[in-house]
């Protein structure tokens, strides 16, 4: 679609506005705390998978279940399988 000639210009922030050294406010501090809490689930999941000795897997079914769990830890956008 062609851009209309009566378009409204949106000004840029002043140069020098970027400041990653700004101290984090309470919202960002809370976000980081929430992130940490969320990660604990992954730690628990990772510990569960790492506790399984791959050499103990006796069947293709056992191996596929293990690989499923490991992949799900690595690819977090894929829903996790239920624990057996």
């Amino acid at each position: 679609m062609p851009r209309p000639s009566n378009a409204i210009d949106v000004p840029d922030p002043e140069r020098g506005s970027f400041n990653p050294n700004r101290p984090p406010g309470l919202l960002l501090q809370a976000q980081a705390l929430h992130m940490r809490e969320a990660l604990l689930k992954h730690l628990e999941e990772l510990a569960f998978v790492l506790a399984i000795d791959p050499k103990s897997l006796k069947t293709e079914g056992d191996v596929s279940a293990y690989i499923h769990r490991a992949t799900a830890v690595l690819h977090t956008h894929v829903p996790r399988p239920r624990r057996m």
Partner: peptide, 9 residues
């Protein structure tokens, strides 16, 4: 023609 559009860099 009645609807605004914004020029954003």
């Amino acid at each position: 023609a009645d609807i605004p559009y914004f020029n954003v860099k």
